[in-house]
């Protein structure tokens, strides 16, 4: 079946219904494996000791914060260009998930910063740009709820998502462009990961777990959104029926 057939929200909802349990199950399994690897099997860092274990919840959350925003911006672009009926639904459904991942990146980062840097927070370029990302997510969510007219809300949301995407490369390269207290990249480097395998594997398992969890939550929230839109149009249809 061609991919475009899933542009039909009802057909998409059916596919999502069959995929949801598998994705949720895999996410839980991978999360348990990742937590076990990170807490039990990974060695303590030679400098940071066991505090380095915060990495296994901090780094994947930060990656997801950026990845989910990227997906949101991409979906908004698709919605703009091809008027794909599901693209706006995908973007709207992603926002709260990305917002939670960003909050987790910030909070676990503070919990890591305090023992390592001696400060919960510093206004360096990495931390500040991620804080801006968090407010972009919040603004996007508020915007959807603030504008009554759905056609105007959808337009404003697309524009906000696209404009905010400028922040993503700024976050990624902030550690190279500015002199940050936050360390530089140690996995996605031009010369390969500089982190040892026994720490890299738990990190990657957690990253895959977070990605699968995002996929599962995205489908669940898209199904909810589609059902709500259907409900709205049924109610509108009933209201306009001649009595």
């Amino acid at each position: 079946m061609p991919v475009l057939a899933y542009a039909n929200p009802e057909r998409f909802a059916r596919l999502a219904r069959s995929l949801t349990p598998w994705l949720l199950g895999s996410a839980v399994g991978l999360l348990l494996a990742g937590l076990f690897l990170g807490l039990f099997l990974a060695p303590p860092d030679y400098q940071q000791g066991d505090a380095a274990r915060i990495m296994y919840v901090h780094v994947p959350a930060a990656w997801m914060a950026m990845f989910v925003y990227g997906c949101m911006a991409l979906a908004s672009a698709v919605a703009f260009i091809w008027k794909h009926p599901l693209a706006d639904v995908a973007a709207k459904a992603s926002a709260p998930i990305g917002c939670i991942f960003t909050a987790l990146a910030l909070i676990t980062g503070m919990l890591w910063g305090k023992p390592m840097w001696g400060a919960w927070w510093v206004w360096d370029a990495r931390l500040t740009s991620v804080l801006i990302l968090f407010f972009m997510y919040l603004g996007y969510i508020v915007l959807w709820n603030a504008i009554e007219d759905p056609a105007r809300a959808v337009r404003a949301a697309r524009i906000l998502a696209l404009v905010g995407a400028i922040n993503i490369p700024i976050i990624k390269f902030s550690v190279d462009w500015w002199n940050t207290l936050h360390q530089g990249a140690s996995v996605f480097r031009a010369d390969g990961p500089s982190i040892t395998g026994s720490m890299l594997i738990p990190l990657l398992v957690m990253a895959v777990a977070y990605n699968v969890l995002y996929a599962a939550l995205l489908l669940i929230r898209m199904r909810a959104e589609i059902a709500e839109r259907r409900l709205r149009s049924i109610r509108l249809g009933l209201e306009f029926e001649p009595k």
Binding site: G49, R53, T108, P115
Partner: peptide
Amino acid sequence: AMGGYAAYVWPAYAISVVSL
């Protein structure tokens, strides 16, 4: 005890699991 970092490691894991 997490090598003395229990006060930072456990809240980080707890808040991640609970909020997700």
